[in-house]
Design a protein around this nucleic acid. Structure first.
Length: 424
RNA sequence: GGAGAGGUGGCUGAGCGGCCGAAAGCGGCGGUCUUGAAAACCGUUGAGGGGAAACCCUCCCAGGGUUCGAAUCCCUGCCUCUCCGCCA
């Protein structure tokens, strides 16, 4: 959620910034609602003030043993008026917060204009795209030949967009996850966490998935309302919901491996082949909770932490700065890391690293005590995939294949594979 | 699943329907003392919101209710703890 004060002090700026996102913001309608809110709130508070002072008078009169009947008669209709005003206020506040919750974050100045991913900017490239002397297969063909990657079985057990991994490929995915967790805890100073994989509505609202993106979620239970997490960002970031963090504890750095569940509503026909887009996939997520003035720096560092994994696996990748139109709802600035997939002859997203600034923190009421002011102030939150394990498995398979369809295991994973060097 | 107890500020913990946004302690901050620190002592210290301002409003787990007036009484829900049962 954005700062309501900003809307009141500089509505033009807000309109301009939201226009950059191609978000249709009706400033006139907002202003009308805001005026109504102000009028009703002031009226309600006046009535409350009146009631409070009258009641106090009654208390004092009663203490002195005076007759309070005349006083009671004077305020007969006050209660009715107050109740009506309160109801009106509740309605308008509800309307206001619904409006505010649907408005995306304001972008950082460094985010380029643009409508879609076409306008994203390539920041850097790492590694050499492999030159095969044969036509490289994609992971589906490789998996079929090797065995151990079965989409029909996934469909039989659950539905389309699920997969069953067995044997060495299942282990390879686990090895990838282990490498990521060990690297981030041992080398990047993240604290490993294990969290619930179901989250309640308050948690999902805190990180911004609700109320706007309910269709993207799997609902696991109606009462209490619980959803399968679409990313570990949700449970991990909610660790600090309604918490005032001691300045000494910042930055908080968490790494969490979890399955992620996405309904992929509206993604019909996209990436239907293979493991690129599944209802369930494994991911290692990095989350940082930092003081506001350090978040831009933290964003660069967090993105580097994700890149390190790709470099350890010697997978060619590039870093993209998302343009205004492609940056997610809650994010102020996002880098995507895209890995080279020989089977597609394309770079594909394998990590998305975002700085949310205070957008999530305001929804979460996640604060720190700023030693300079002595007051609780909103923290900044960040997260990024470090990395998506399913897509990393694909990338390893496709980049490390040979003409016989074998997969050579990257050096960094061999220890986790019991010394194995090749899957055949 | 059954029985009981409880949810109050950063933390622990008092709290009679009006004098309670809330005692006390701890912690934090400032000071006295000290070469410095500790101890001791003194002072100070909740959050959110509205209003141009004076000033006002809200918040004692959440949501309802009773009342002129609710941290306090009633109902519902959620959560925590103890005991029993079940259980990887």
């Amino acid at each position: 959620m954005l700062d309501p004060h900003l809307f009141r002090s500089d509505l033009d700026l807000v309109s301009k910034e939201l226009a950059r996102r191609h978000f249709a913001f009706d400033a006139v309608a907002y202003q009308a609602l805001e005026n109504k809110r102000k009028e009703i709130q002031v009226k309600t508070q006046q009535l409350q003030s009146e009631r409070n002072s009258r009641s106090k008078t009654i208390g004092q009169a009663k203490a002195k043993g005076e007759d309070i009947q005349p006083l009671l008669a004077q305020i007969e209709d006050l209660g009715v008026q107050h109740k009506a005003a309160e109801g009106e206020l509740a309605d308008v506040l509800l309307e206001m917060s619904a409006l505010m919750e649907g408005i995306p974050n304001i972008l950082d100045i460094s985010v380029p204009d643009g409508k879609s991913e076409e306008q994203n900017i390539e920041i850097s490239r790492w590694g050499d795209v492999p030159n095969f002397t044969f036509t490289p297969k994609d992971h589906v063909d490789l998996g079929e030949k090797l065995g151990g990657m079965n989409f029909e079985l996934g469909a039989k057990i659950a539905s389309a967009r699920f997969v069953v991994l067995t044997g060495k490929l299942a282990r390879l995915q686990r090895a990838i996850i282990q490498l990521m967790l060990d690297t981030h805890t041992d080398e990047h100073d993240y604290s490993e966490t294990y969290t619930p994989f179901l989250a309640n509505a308050a948690s999902l609202r805190g990180t911004g998935q609700l109320p706007k993106f309910e269709a993207d979620l799997f609902k696991a239970s109606e009462d209490p309302a619980l959803y399968l997490i679409p990313t570990a960002e949700v449970p991990v970031t909610n660790i600090v919901r309604d918490v005032i963090i001691d300045a000494k504890e910042l930055p908080l750095k968490y790494v969490c491996h979890s399955p992620c569940f996405r309904s992929e509503a509206g993604a019909y026909g996209r990436d239907v082949r293979g493991m690129i887009r599944q209802h369930q996939f494994e991911k290692v997520e990095l989350v940082q909770i930092v003081s506001p003035e350090t978040s831009m720096q933290a964003h660069e560092e967090l993105t580097r932490h994700a890149e390190v994994i790709l470099e350890k696996l010697n997978l060619p990748y590039r870093r993209m700065l998302l343009c205004a139109g492609d940056t997610g709802f809650s994010s102020a600035k996002t880098y995507d890391l895209e890995v080279w997939l020989p089977g597609q002859g394309k770079y594909r997203e394998i990590s998305s690293c975002s700085n949310f600034k205070d957008f999530q923190a305001r929804r979460l009421q996640a604060r720190w005590r700023n030693p300079e002011s002595g007051k609780p102030e909103l923290v900044h939150t960040l997260n990024g995939s470090g990395l998506a394990a399913g897509r990393t498995l694909i990338a390893v398979m496709e980049n490390y294949q040979d003409e016989q369809g074998r997969i050579h295991i990257p050096q960094a994973l061999q220890a986790y594979m019991g010394g194995m060097t090749v899957i055949e």
